[in-house]
Amino acid sequence: MSNPFQNTPAARLIADRVRDLSHRKTQAEIAAEAGFTNANMMSLLKSGKNKVPLDRVPSLAKALEMDPALLMRIALDQAVGVTAAKAITDIFGSPVTENERGWLTELREVSDNTDPRLTARSRAALRGVFGK
């Protein structure tokens, strides 16, 4: 059986979250909590055999204890492809995570709401913050 979604960001992120939660929840428990009847669903998602069903993103994000906006964004890329996902988010807007909302708040505070541009020097400063 092929793994058409192997190593997609969604498959990798789900694998990371399952591993991070493994001391508290089994994969079967996460699958049940997300509303999947197939107890092996998390294995299928991690390996990339199956893509994330978009209608399950809210419950799956809750079961994985992660932000639903982040999971929706990468699940959308996986479900319809990056180009189509970009077209969707261009029209409907990109889901903003709680963390991103927080970063925006910080940005507004430290800039006194001056709406600063993202310049080359700003980019360099951010790379320093996020270590890349």
Partner: peptide, 16 residues
């Protein structure tokens, strides 16, 4: 700003 943070964090949604 948000899109750049997504790129440099490799989509990891960095915590504050």
């Amino acid at each position: 700003w948000i899109e750049f943070i997504r790129v440099i964090s490799n989509g990891s949604d960095p915590r504050i």
